[in-house]
Design a binder for these strands. Structure first.
Lengths: 245, 245, 245, 245
DNA sequence: TATGAATGAGCCTTCATTCAT
DNA sequence: GATGAATGAAGGCTCATTCAT
């Protein structure tokens, strides 16, 4: 009868439903994290959410929709967290370091979701077109943009194969995280990020060509001085200052 | 009772058993390739092997053992194929290029098995300790050795994190292959291998020396041709060979 | 609190309730027409009536009561439509023709309801005692009366088994309608009615007298026209009027 | 070891499976007879067949296949029983009487199946194309043939609408049987058959035209005698000797 | 009075595995 | 050794109905 009561009448069910949704979502997250989609049972989720199976179907259309909702919840939060930080960073190396470290932190903060996503991305041949695929695309656009702009700015090789580069980043991350999670090892996300970025940007070689370059230079100088009378141009500074590891 | 019969009793069963095993293995390979472990049914495998379900259990302890047998068969053949070739290659870049290309060729030759392995590696949290894990370790030892010896020989940076490097190789390969298979794209294994190895070894950064190297080369050629009448042998064109492998 | 509100409190609810009932009834009619009782869901009816499931239970005791209400509504209207017309017809043949044609018109006007009734009459072994049974009895009383009075008047065989005759009429109609509806054929109710009534009243046998009757008629006409200058009134053409009604 | 034993080894499983099939079929028949297809539960059938639900699925693909098997079993036996008798009967009236009586006997011998078939023929809009439809067509071909040949032989009116006639026979039977079954009345199949056939063949009319015919005759005689001096031809024997009822 | 969230029993179907033959 | 019928637990999902608000 009082306005407050009326409001209660109006909002209480909504609030309740919202709470239920959260409970179920949390329960689903736990269960889907612990076993593959097909292996996870709705009844277990219901039990963990302290409701009956039927209730789940009043909130989510079916098991798949519930699964997708878990993913969306996670990715939305993740992207919302990344965006403002990312927008403040300009340099390609800095952006990469940030994104790689942020990605590694997922494995530290939410190892359950991390393995769930890695598992399910591979689980179905119908992955393409799935909600997970769409979310992954949104998420990976940060890397895409970083790489594309890196090339534009001349910080990355002009002929860099962007798709391959993206796969290399995510592939390295996925493999590394998978191994750490499986071995239950912890790690320092920032340190590993720096190491990875360094490996990606500067490569693994000791650069045999540095030696060749020197030889070449010497031969050239010798020849030129003999023939032309002017010394060859020497090579600029090699190697970068290595930070981390 | 007749000699022929006796012989049958003695040798036929062995032969028969072996044949049965092969038939079942082949059938299982097809089925497991087409759907995830949980989705594949023993009855379908039996049907495809032209036997009944019970028979499978006389040869394999259970479904998982059958699955593992399929994997062992595949990896054994793969490793046996790689080993002799690998042993003939010395240079780190050459070894890497070979191993990467060989890995890519799996996706070209047996895309179904390739997806199956990628899928099942991620399927269970109990991956570690599994047969698949052991096989993967055997298989990846080629890369491990290549990397370790690459450092020893000074061809790779002394401070290279070997585990990270290995994950980077396999991660890049897995992601790339997954994307190509899902999109049903085909690709030139050798060309992609060269591209990947180049990206890994030389990194993504623009490097002033690449330009300098070119300048140097041109100058050298000019001089040498003037003096000697024949161009000097330099390393072939630097940067990724975008056209062909 | 305001006069308007008071009026609302007093009369609006009644009006509202009545409107609700109608909306639900209309929605239920559509849904029950499209699928069997068991297959029709209360939630679908609620959705189509733009209310929630709970509301339906404030108006109808349960799903079965709702279904019965749909039937009552339909039969009441049908009987109210038939009664005045029927009361104006005296002859047995004319009455039969009217009732048969009217019945056939249900299938033309409301094919969905027609199938629904045919379907549900057979659906439950507990048909007897059901609302539908009672309604069918009320409806079939037109035929009962026609047949009984037909015998009384000497228009129908005195030894006609009335129950059997009634079943023959409705059985023929039901089968015929079912076949036409299932094949999505349309038909001319009047023509078919005449055909059915003729088959029922005169039977299927060839009767020598039909031919004789024709001969007799022709002879009579010839003679009468010769003698009297105008044709005698005979029964119109015997045999079923195959063309038109 | 003995041939007999060997045979046992070979045939026992078959025999067992066959027995199981029969048990399940019998149980299914009972359950489907007592409630509509959708309402009948596989678990109830399993319980009544003293096996678990899973067993049913080793014999029948699904619930629908089981249902169809019940129908096929019934119709096959029915048609096999009718065929030899039918082939010995020539006259249209005799054939009709036999078929009608045989049909009525179904309701006496297998009232459960009878109501089940009547119910399910109406249950689904997808009836056309169903197994039941196909079986019904095979079964009703006896009537179709009887009617068509009856016309050919001149025993039935040449312009008889065969489809309508068939619907009239089956419709009358269905309605009559349904009513008797529902009221749990028994009846004398032969007597009712004779009554039905008589009603169908000779019609219900007392034949007002008999009176007209007489009038006509009288008028004609009067006129002819006056004009031509010769008496009109008198009408042949009317009415048939009524057997039964 | 109307709401709509919650219930909970029940349904059909699948499948790895066993075991008597 | 091979067979294949039988098991029985489990799974996802639906829906009429209730009841606190």
């Amino acid at each position: 009868m009082k306005p407050a009561t009326r409001e209660t009448v109006a909002t209480q069910p909504k609030r309740r439903k919202e709470a239920r949704r959260s409970e179920i979502l949390a329960a689903a997250r736990e269960v889907f994290a612990s076993k593959p989609f097909e292996g996870a049972s709705v009844s277990e989720i219901a039990a963990r959410a302290s409701c009956v199976e039927g209730t789940i179907y009043t909130v989510f259309r079916n098991k798949r929709a519930l699964f997708d909702a878990v993913l969306v919840q996670f990715y939305d939060a993740l992207i919302a967290d990344i965006e403002p930080h990312f927008n403040l960073i300009r340099g390609t190396r800095d952006r990469l370091r940030y994104l790689v470290a942020r990605h590694l932190r997922i494995a530290v903060d939410s190892p359950d979701i991390a393995s769930m996503i890695m598992r399910e991305s591979r689980a179905h041949s119908v992955y393409f077109g799935s909600t997970l695929h769409a979310l992954n695309r949104r998420y990976s656009s940060f890397i895409q943009r970083t790489l594309a702009e890196g090339v534009e700015r001349g910080e990355l090789r002009a002929d860099l194969d962007l798709a391959l580069a993206r796969d290399m980043v995510f592939g390295a991350l996925e493999h590394w995280i998978w191994n750490q999670l499986a071995r239950r090892r912890s790690f320092d996300a920032l340190r590993v990020a720096e190491e990875i970025v360094s490996m990606l940007l500067e490569g693994w070689s000791t650069r045999a060509e540095a030696a060749e370059f020197a030889t070449l230079s010497r031969r050239l100088e010798r020849v030129e001085s003999k023939v032309l009378g002017s010394p060859a141009q020497t090579r600029p500074q090699r190697g970068r200052p290595r930070s981390g590891s």
